[in-house]
Design a protein around this nucleic acid. Structure first.
Length: 400
DNA sequence: TCTGGGGTCCTAGGACCC
DNA sequence: TCTGGGGTCCTAGGACCC
């Protein structure tokens, strides 16, 4: 989807079309404030002058999406709002409305599934579609069906998207970037040399800042230069799996299938505080946040019907270092108090002498609720601590 | 007043088991 | 003075993606 979060807001506030708008932050609920003042139906008539500007933004946060006019000023995803304010002070800033975003996400995905059922989720605003066997999927090299999907999405949502058509997911992902917004791009294996090899290695899905930097240090900038490397050299530099993978993708090769189903691996909640907190001096505040995070994770598990066996915490210190601790319990749980208790144990194992800016709680080793093995304690009195946990007897019953 | 939140996957070492 | 070779599970950190 093109500038997804921002585009969703523009549907509500069409008067902002053509203006630099960024979505991010989220502590201030602009919509609620404006709505209280004007009423929902009048939202489209609110004068542009009444919208909050980036230069007036106070608080911590990053940009999730910038409209194309805002991108002209050099602002973009993941940029701190304070930095963005220096580049484009006149940009209008709106908070993320997650409920609305999720609603549109479901809508565009279901629209696609009606046309082509083999769809793989790639986050909130992206999918892979296998339309090899969809009737008409081969017409005009795929362009006809891509157009059809684009039109269907626009009719259902009023939003535009960009589609890349290629023989595999790797190339399709790159192709989708070629003609944005509202574009269709078709890349064949034969286009490798002409259209893929000139691109920077960072355009490869899976080569991020670190690998990009290391490749640059080796004098490898473009995908073509990467393809020209000896496979064994790359393996020597990046390890067996990564090196071989890099060589494959540089040659446009990717045989990973479009996965239509997936099971969640973990669920987590985390929050960055409005100001850095100290474990001792801000104990009460921190404790309340901690408990709330555990309750949210428990609610997420219950809502989605999962139970977790590994509970973990994540801290970010004021110097941005991250520490994680986790603990695997003898039994699965989706209970807030149990999660809070295990997470509390984790918290005891991490240094707390420095101010914190973020706290998170994570549930892993998930199983569908109802399918978790039954756990029985031989000695219910042996409840204290990890050492004794090892003496507990675990009995797995197969449920017939 | 720099730098969100929710994920996945990989690596590496140690414990533990056969 | 010597002490294997698998395998799995757990934990911590890190790269990367949307």
């Amino acid at each position: 989807m093109d500038a997804f979060f921002a585009s969703v807001e523009l549907l509500r506030y069409p008067q902002l079309k053509g203006l630099p708008v960024v979505i991010g932050g989220g502590r201030r609920t602009v919509d609620e404030a404006l709505m209280a003042q004007h009423g929902e139906r009048a939202l489209r008539f609110i004068p542009v002058a009444e919208f909050p500007l980036l230069k007036d933004y106070v608080g911590r946060g990053v940009i999730t999406t910038a409209t194309y006019p805002a991108r002209q000023f050099g602002v973009g995803s993941a940029m701190g709002l304070m930095k963005a304010a220096r580049l484009c002070p006149q940009a209008i800033v709106l908070p993320v409305d997650f409920d609305e975003i999720r609603r549109f996400s479901r809508l565009f995905k279901s629209t696609i599934a009606e046309v082509a059922p083999l769809v793989q989720d790639r986050g909130i605003d992206e999918v892979y579609i296998d339309f090899t066997d969809v009737p008409g999927g081969q017409r005009e090299g795929g362009r006809a069906l891509a157009r059809l999907i684009q039109r269907a999405i626009f009719e259902k949502t009023g939003l535009t998207c960009s589609i890349g058509v290629a023989p595999n997911k790797l190339l399709a992902k790159m192709a989708s970037e070629f003609d944005k917004p509202n574009g269709i791009s078709i890349v064949q294996q034969a286009d490798l040399q002409g259209r893929i090899w000139p691109l920077n290695v960072r355009k490869i899905n899976g080569i991020g800042p670190k690998a990009g930097e290391k490749l640059a240090a080796l004098g490898i900038q473009t995908i073509g230069e990467l393809a020209a490397q000896d496979r064994q050299f790359l393996i020597g530099q990046f390890g067996k799996a990564s090196g071989a993978w890099m060589h494959e993708v540089a040659w446009g090769r990717d045989d990973s299938p479009v996965e239509t189903t997936s099971e969640p691996v973990s669920m987590s909640r985390e929050t960055t505080f409005e100001r850095d907190l100290h474990a001792v001096r801000d104990k009460a505040e921190l404790g309340a946040i901690f408990t709330r995070l555990c309750e949210q994770v428990a609610a997420d598990l219950q809502h989605k019907g999962y139970v977790a066996r590994t509970i973990g915490i994540k801290l970010r210190y004021n110097d941005f270092r991250i520490a994680t601790r986790d603990q695997t319990a003898p039994a699965h749980t989706d209970d807030a108090r149990t999660i809070r208790q295990i997470a509390g144990q984790c918290l005891k194992r991490v240094p707390l002498d420095q101010r914190l800016r973020l706290l998170g709680v994570r549930a892993g080793a998930l199983t569908k609720a109802g399918q978790a093995p039954v756990y029985e304690e031989k000695s219910p009195s042996a409840q204290t601590g990890r050492a004794q946990a090892a003496t507990k007897t675990i009995v797995n019953y197969t449920l017939f």
